[in-house]
């Protein structure tokens, strides 16, 4: 079997295995698995309102997936998407509440501020990796917590009077759309999905159509060969992290300017950044794959909220399934061996 076919079959099998194990868990714990999956489907697509909510959830997932996937292409593991998302969210809301400008200036400014903040937050681990060969995984994890606490502090002291949330952003900086909301029975669907799809195109264009993208990928494949070919490994590492962080910051802008319209004190992480790892892995770090994986995880997450109501099954079951999918994709060595065995039997 060709490796291209395998690259498509492995994620599909991983999803199936995740769902099968999820079903087994429900059977053991005595929940009605059939009802659970029907509730899941209804909760994601059963009604135009739910569809709107699903697309809303898919939006930050696409961007978080792009962020993780883009860094992966250069051989970097950006586990700090969560922190970059938080600073992006904060920056977008900050611009959103600080000025009142015409919409065609204000909205792009707020969105760009988020991208810049995310990029800056990812620049630090990129720089440390390039200059001091410090592993980016650890630094980005640490940066996540720094982002969380610093953002909380700024919200409490600078952006509000000791309150636990900021004011709403001015309408001129909002991604909200009465048109889309009306279309989907007053879901929180906003224009962010357009931004996300544009970013998918940008990622594809940078990686496939520019010589810079070629360099970024080359560094991901083999640093020594790239160095020998005259590319600057260091600047490519930093650039890759900066672009990745910009995508992550935009994911924060989607939440700050679209879904919520404000920023609030957080006790913990949003989870979007970590789910972005799942999206990128399942999507094989390719633009189309990331869209498909984001749609899958977005509909699972939104649909899950309906499971306790309609089927009496805890929505955490979906978190288990997502974790298992990540696990099976990560351990795809197992699946590949399995496919090889099947392939050989077929040949005989």
């Amino acid at each position: 079997m060709s490796s291209r076919m395998k690259n498509i079959i492995v994620p599909i099998l991983a999803v199936l295995l995740g769902i099968i194990v999820g079903t087994i868990i429900m059977l053991i714990t005595g929940y009605d698995a059939g009802a659970a999956f029907i509730a899941l489907w209804d909760g994601a697509f059963g009604d135009i309102y739910y569809t709107g909510e699903t697309i809303r959830q898919v939006t930050p997932y696409i961007l978080a997936g792009l962020a993780v996937g883009f860094a992966f292409k250069t051989g970097l593991f950006n586990i700090g998407v969560e922190g970059q998302l938080i600073v992006g969210w904060l920056a977008a809301v900050w611009v959103g509440v600080a000025f009142e400008l015409p919409k065609f200036i204000h909205l792009p400014l707020a969105v760009l501020a988020a991208a810049a903040a995310g990029a800056l937050w990812a620049f630090i681990p990129g720089l440390l990796k390039a200059k001091f060969r410090v592993h980016e995984v650890i630094v980005t994890i640490m940066m996540n917590y720094i982002a969380l606490h610093v953002a909380n502090y700024i919200i409490r002291t600078v952006l509000s009077e000791k309150s636990d949330r900021t004011a709403d952003v001015f309408p001129s900086a909002s991604l909200r759309s009465p048109f889309l909301e009306g279309l989907t029975d007053y879901s929180r669907l906003h224009w962010g999905i357009i931004v996300a799809l544009i970013c998918v195109f940008i990622m594809w264009f940078i990686l496939e159509k520019t010589s810079r993208g070629y360099e970024l990928k080359a560094v991901g494949f083999n640093q020594h060969a790239s160095e020998y070919a005259g590319m600057s490994v260091k600047s490519n590492i930093i650039l890759s992290m900066v672009i990745s962080g910009a995508f992550a910051g935009l994911a924060g802008a989607m939440e700050g300017l679209g879904t919520f319209g404000y920023a609030s004190i957080r006790g913990g992480f949003t989870g979007v950044g970590f789910d972005g790892i799942a999206v990128a892995l399942l999507g094989g770090n390719t633009p189309i794959g990331i869209i498909l994986a984001a749609v899958l995880f977005g509909s699972l997450k939104v649909g899950a909220l309906n499971m306790p109501l309609e089927a009496g099954v805890p929505n955490e079951l979906v978190d288990i399934i997502i974790a298992l999918i990540v696990f099976f994709v990560a351990a795809s060595y197992m699946i590949r061996i399995f496919i090889d065995r099947i392939g050989k039997k077929g040949a005989k």
Partner: peptide
């Protein structure tokens, strides 16, 4: 995952974190 199946150890760790929260909250409910 990480020893026998040669998975990326960071990814497997992420899966452990997601799985632990999912399983424990599911069981609490």
């Amino acid at each position: 995952a990480s020893i026998t199946f040669r998975a990326d150890q960071t990814v497997s760790g992420v899966a452990i974190n997601l799985l632990a929260v999912g399983v424990s909250l599911f069981l609490v409910k």
